[in-house]
Amino acid sequence: MSSTTHNHTDASCIFCKIIAGSIPSMKLFETDKVYAFLDIGPIAPKHCLVIPKWHGAKITDIPDDYLMEIAPALKRIAIASGEENYNLLANAGTIAHQVVMHLHWHFIPKPDEKQGLGVGWPATKPEKKELQRIYDELKQKL
């Protein structure tokens, strides 16, 4: 199904408009279910975006058959980029730094310490009992 024939778009969404062609993009490639393009506000050279052609803000909003094409698309970009170090990132929710409420993955090269994504990792050391409680809860729901 092409982006112009399915009904799972949002007329006010910038990414839906890019998929539809009403806003220009530097399209790298597309399939029936994903669209890949160069980020116009990159944090490193070759910073790209991969988006499903199904409008939804979070991974839980997108059908599995669309999600199954995301990883191969990111792999294709990684190979084409020739970059050795990079981050793959999807933010979900405003407080998790999501700006466009259409699920998207960033391919962000990390050519050196200055360019690319800077990440803080505030690791904690929970007690074994707390880890077990969290594990049990997740395992039961999976």
Rank of each mutant, 00 (worst) to 15 (best):
Q115S: 11
C16M: 09
A80I: 05
L49T: 08
L88R: 04
E113Q: 08
M68Y: 06
P122Y: 07
Q132K: 14
R76F: 06
P109D: 03
M26Q: 15
Q140M: 13
D61G: 07
E30G: 11
M26T: 14
E113L: 07
S25A: 15
S12P: 00
F37A: 10
P42T: 04
A36F: 05
K125G: 00
K128C: 00
T124C: 04
I108E: 02
F107V: 00
L28P: 04
N87R: 15
S3I: 10
H8P: 01
T9Q: 03
T60D: 12
A20V: 01
E30A: 14
T124G: 03
A57Q: 14
Y66A: 05
A96V: 11
I43L: 11
M68I: 10
K17I: 02
D136C: 02
R76W: 04
D65G: 01
C13T: 06
A20L: 13
I70S: 08
K46E: 10
L117N: 06
I134Q: 11
V99G: 00
L142D: 01
P109R: 06
K33G: 00
E127S: 07
D65Q: 07
K17L: 09
D32N: 12
H55W: 05
P63G: 09
I19V: 15
T4Q: 12
Y135H: 11
T94P: 02
E137H: 10
V99F: 07
I77K: 05
N91E: 10
I59S: 14
I134F: 07
M68L: 13
F107K: 00
G118Q: 12
E69S: 10
K141P: 01
G41R: 15
I40V: 15
L49Q: 09
G93Y: 08
I43S: 10
K110F: 00
M26C: 09
G82S: 06
K110N: 10
A44G: 10
A11P: 13
P45G: 03
I79C: 05
A80H: 06
E69Q: 15
A73I: 08
G116T: 04
I23W: 02
V100W: 02
T31R: 05
E130T: 14
D136S: 11
F15A: 11
H102A: 05
C48N: 15
A73Y: 02
A57E: 15
E69P: 09
I134N: 06
T31W: 03
T60F: 02
K114V: 11
P63C: 08
A71R: 02
G21E: 02
N91H: 08
N87A: 15
S12Y: 03
D112W: 00
A36D: 10
A36G: 09
F15R: 12
A36P: 06
H97M: 13
E84H: 14
T5W: 00
K17H: 09
P42S: 07
D112I: 00
K128H: 03
T124V: 14
T5V: 12
F37K: 12
I62K: 12
A11L: 11
N85K: 15
T60E: 14
F15N: 11
H97R: 14
F37M: 13
Q140D: 14
G56M: 01
K110P: 00
E83C: 14
A73G: 06
W105P: 02
K139S: 14
V50D: 06
T60Q: 13
I23A: 06
K58M: 13
D64P: 04
T31F: 05
T60C: 08
